[in-house]
Design a protein around this nucleic acid. Sequence first.
DNA 1: AACCGTCACAACCGCATGCGA
DNA 2: CTCGCATGCGGTTGTGACGGT
Length: 323
Amino acid sequence: MVRTPSCDKSGLRKGTWTPEEDMKLVAYVTRYGCWNWRQLPKFAGLARCGKSCRLRWMNYLRPNLKRGNFTPQEEECIIRMLKKLGNRWSAIAAELPGRTDNEIKNHWHTTLKKRSQQNTVTNEEARASKSKNKESRAVRDSVPNKNGVTVSLPATSQISDNSSGSFSPISSSSSEFSSITSDHSNSASMENLVLEDDFGFLGSYVNESFWKELNLDGVSYGAPCEVVSRDTNGSFQSTDSTQNVDSCALSPHQSSSESMVVDNDFGTFLDAYGEATVDNFWSQPYVVDVSHVPSELLVPSVAESEYFAPVYDDFWGQSHFVQ
DNA sequence: AACCGTCACAACCGCATGCGA
DNA sequence: CTCGCATGCGGTTGTGACGGT
């Protein structure tokens, strides 16, 4: 199902992402955010191009992704939006929380498209069948009598023919989807769908010893970050990051042992943090939903001396690295 | 058991777009 | 206005899984 790992000319890895690569990316992005995809793999210790990292994160690793089969409501929404917007997959994905454009696109090409085509064929066959039935009934009803004289019999019933109706393959009124309402009330109900554990796929190879055992080729995640949980009032509370928290703020630069990644792209970096500004940057916690992140990822057990992250010690100057 | 065709989907590729210098 | 860079988007490909023969 996945591609065989390979390398391109520049030595960057291509193909299937390994669990270790996923770990690095998840750990880095959940901690520092995606401040610059081009630079990110270098800092995260990934031999990947930024594009590949972004794709992997956006389509597979990022939180709140809904995995598993599409619900009938989602499929109906896809069909409806496709009819409305065309193949603007990202716009369609925006209507389906937790689904990616790639996922929707794949689902369309592998399942819905064929189903719609079959639906069209079925409808056409039905029409043809009805037409044929009418003909055959006409033939049947035109029974030659003993004398070879054709006598037209009066029809006992009339089959209603709706063939003039719409048989659009992506019409929400088509038979296959006729039982599904097409109003936006579905959107609300879809939000109540159970989201799978976003990092469930990591479960098989993430355990307590993972971070200890993992040799991260130049990058590790030694410095534990302070986790600030958000209470029901929306205020933040410092908490033990080993605890599971549903919604919390990561404050990656509150630890005395680490500084934030900035490189030369401070503006982009700030943009990545939404409302952060130069003035409040160092005091505002970086708010990120890490409810999906296993505690092992938040507090990796790697010796701090191995910590390898860019440090921005000269605000307007060059960043450098410490290890 | 081996082979083959189909399916599903992760990932790649190339182009488009936005933005700052 | 132009250029270069970063990111987003949609089409396409590659490959393991799976079922049928």
